[in-house]
Simulated scan of single mutants.
Amino acid sequence: MSVPAPIARARYASVTTYRRDGRPVPTPVGVVADAGELFVLTERTSGKVKRIRYNATVTVTPCDMSGRVAADAPMVRGQARLLDREGTARVRRLMSRRFPISRLVFAADLLLRRRDRRIGIAISL
C-alpha cells in the first residue's frame, strides 16, 4: 500500500509506537514519503527505537510541529523497520532535501564524529 496523500504531504506526523504492556506512545516527528514508504530519522537510543525493536506496529497521523492532530486527520496503521547504515544515509539525504535546516544538524554530527548517532526508520502503511 502506498502512503495516503494527506500523510505524504505532511511535514510532520505523530508516530505512535507501543510499549510492552500495549500502552501507546505518540511522538511528533519530521517525515518524508518516498517510493511508497514513509521515512523518519531519529536518535539511535530513543525510546521509539527500543519500542520498534519489540513491536514493529505503529500508527501514523499527520500533525503539526508540536504534535497537535486535527480532528479530521486520517490515522493509518503500519509496520516500522529499522534501517541499516546505507538505508539511514538515504533517509538523511531525503530529510536534507525536505528540511534544509537539518543539514546543520548532520554537519555537526560529522564534525563531532557522531555520524552513527541517528538511525532511519521506514514505515510501510
Rank of each mutant, 00 (worst) to 15 (best):
V3D: 10
R19V: 07
A56I: 04
Y12I: 02
A122I: 07
P62I: 11
L38G: 08
V29T: 10
I123F: 08
G67F: 03
S46G: 03
P28G: 09
R114Y: 05
V29K: 06
T17Y: 03
I52E: 02
R93W: 05
Y12M: 09
V3L: 08
L110N: 01
R81Y: 01
L110A: 15
A10G: 03
R118V: 12
D34F: 12
L41W: 11
R118T: 07
V58S: 08
P4E: 08
R103N: 12
D116L: 00
V69A: 05
F106S: 01
D34H: 15
G36F: 14
V40A: 14
P24W: 08
T59D: 15
T45E: 15
S124N: 09
V76Q: 10
T88G: 03
P74K: 10
A5W: 00
V25Q: 12
A10S: 15
I121N: 05
R90I: 03
D84V: 04
G36P: 10
M75P: 02
A10P: 06
S14T: 10
V29G: 02
A70V: 03
G22L: 11
L125Y: 09
S46R: 13
E43P: 04
F99V: 02
T42W: 13
R93A: 15
Y18D: 02
E43T: 10
M95K: 00
R11V: 10
I7Q: 03
L104N: 09
R19G: 07
G36V: 13
P28D: 10
G67R: 05
A13D: 04
D116A: 00
A70H: 02
P4I: 05
I7E: 03
P4W: 00
V15R: 08
I121H: 07
V69P: 05
I7G: 05
A89F: 01
R81K: 14
A5P: 05
M1S: 14
A35T: 14
L94V: 13
T45W: 14
V49D: 13
G87H: 03
V29M: 15
S96T: 14
V49I: 15
P26H: 11
V105D: 07
P6M: 02
M1N: 05
A122M: 03
F39K: 11
Y18K: 06
A8D: 07
E37C: 14
V40G: 02
D84C: 01
E86Q: 14
E86V: 10
R103W: 00
T88Q: 06
Y12K: 06
L104E: 01
S124M: 02
A80M: 05
R118C: 02
T59K: 14
A73N: 01
V15W: 12
R98E: 09
L41Q: 02
Q79I: 10
R20H: 12
S46H: 01
R90W: 01
R118K: 00
R68G: 04
R23S: 15
R118L: 12
A73F: 06
M65F: 10
M65D: 04
R53S: 09
L111R: 13
R68P: 07
I7Y: 08
L83C: 01
T27W: 08
A122C: 01
S102I: 13
A122S: 14
L112E: 00
